[in-house]
Design a protein around this nucleic acid. Structure first.
Lengths: 207, 207
DNA sequence: GTCTATAGCCAGATAGAC
DNA sequence: GTCTATCTGGCTATAGAC
């Protein structure tokens, strides 16, 4: 008797998607090799074409899946009913965790963005990813109430994204340049996760 | 009679380097095509191999040149004798200008960083790029003097880099998602250039 | 130095047996 | 569904004429 067969866990299709996610994220669309994906999945190259007609197709399947994750994790928080400050705290900690588990993702997106901007923008549009209206509104309100400094909501959003995403994006390089021992950099990032939200909130409070 | 023939301006070699810089930065190492570089330079593909033995070679030549620019523009400011606050102001405005003129550069680096982290780190090491000691020292001093808040110099540096580089990196996507008309986004970035330094300096001042 | 033509390789895709 | 074997196209690199 088998374990409860949840969904189609460990089906060949799932194996392929998992392997493809890994390889595409390491190498990008142009650099990835179908053979490498097949090897990673422990199956034959021809099977990739059996399940997904072409490389392009497989790529899109992987990418669509990843965007869904962003949509849920990221916009979920920012569009919630939470008050602004809790929201900022939740964003930084939640997003940092998410990015550490998917540290390939930002590089992957930037990579493909350079290759074919239109395609990437359309993917994002299709996934319904856009500046969260609820957050924008809250910022405007808090500015008007005089609780935070005069700041353009878009600039504030860009600052949040920059501070959260860039360090993950540049992590391998920063590790190398700082000549940090393996653990040191991870520790730096842990410290960052704790201190960044409070510093950031403080930075938009009135003196 | 010709114009004063400055250096080897417009020599075939210069034409190739210029074209290669363009194509490599758009497509990355894996995505770039020697044919495309040749077309861009208005010469034949075989000439590329005549001047630079291989694609790998050409790539390294281009990249070495680009790192030199970073070294001069970026570390020049941060290692100077300027006081901390002037330095921060200069960094944001100067670096933003530099990145706008070389908007491909961050994506290029992130791209190659994902393909082959070790190679990229070595390139940076060879170019002598590392956290600027003078800046680190200044931050420590100002913290000790009680002029700015208690903050780890590395975190401060990471914040500066994040805020300056990420928006350029993600610009095409942000443009698309914000559904900004062409001029709108540029205006947003202009505004950013003016407001970011003051906001950032304010964020590290004691209340 | 610059070109045309082509060799040689590699990766995506397909045919067809099981 | 899964495999082996193979086709096909495209890209780097080279040979060789001018």
């Amino acid at each position: 008797m088998e374990e409860v067969p949840k969904h189609k866990e460990n089906s060949t299709e799932e194996l392929i998607l998992k392997a493809a996610k890994l390889v595409f994220s390491r190498k990008g669309m142009a650099g990835a090799r179908m053979q490498e994906i097949a090897d990673e999945a422990g199956i034959n190259k021809a099977l990739l074409h059996y399940y997904f007609r072409s490389k392009e197709n497989l790529f899109n399947a992987v990418f669509y899946d990843l965007l869904g994750n962003i949509q849920k994790k990221f916009l979920g928080i920012l569009n919630s009913e939470m008050d602004l400050f809790s929201k900022i705290r939740n964003f930084f900690t939640g997003y940092t965790d998410f990015l550490q588990e998917n540290s390939f993702l930002p590089g992957f997106i930037i990579n493909e963005l350079n290759q074919d901007p239109e395609k990437m923008i359309n993917h994002f549009r299709d996934a319904g990813i856009k500046p969260p209206p609820k957050l924008i509104l809250q910022i405007k309100e808090e500015v008007q109430k005089g609780n935070i400094i005069q700041i353009d909501p878009m600039q504030l959003l860009m600052n949040m994204l920059s501070l959260a995403i860039f360090p993950v994006l540049a992590a391998p390089l920063l590790k190398g340049i700082l000549e940090a021992k393996e653990g040191d950099f991870d520790q730096l990032m842990e410290k960052r996760k704790r201190e960044l939200p409070e510093w950031f909130i403080n930075s938009i409070m009135k003196k």
